[in-house]
Nucleic acid binder design. Sequence first.
DNA 1: AAACTGACTTCTC
DNA 2: GGAGAAGCCAGTT
Length: 109
Amino acid sequence: MKTPHISPFFARVYAIVTQIPKGNVATYGQIAALAGSPKAARAVGMAMRTNPDAPRVPCHRVVASDGSLTGYSGDGGIEKKSKMLIDEGVQFLPGCNKVDITLAKWDGL
DNA sequence: AAACTGACTTCTC
DNA sequence: GGAGAAGCCAGTT
């Protein structure tokens, strides 16, 4: 693996996202807190948008604070993202295009 | 070096 | 309950 010229914060975020267990999801705020700044949710989102290691970083496991799927520059957009989460075993709220963060939120190890 | 932008979060109406 | 505005962090231009 090559060393992409990314800032340490980005690397930290990617590491955290990569460590999210299957069937669970994490919020941007949670990742930001683990990265060292609980209010850097926006920066975390930017890291996902940059996503230099798309297949390596399960950015689809990262959702908003209320479980809403946001962003996803990949193919299919939110639709594809929700589909992947369902395939991973993440519970979704009925009638809403959001994940059941109440049950699927990552413990943060 | 300064200003703008962005896949966020939270409060208030 | 839904919509709008403000605040925050880090990166990019």
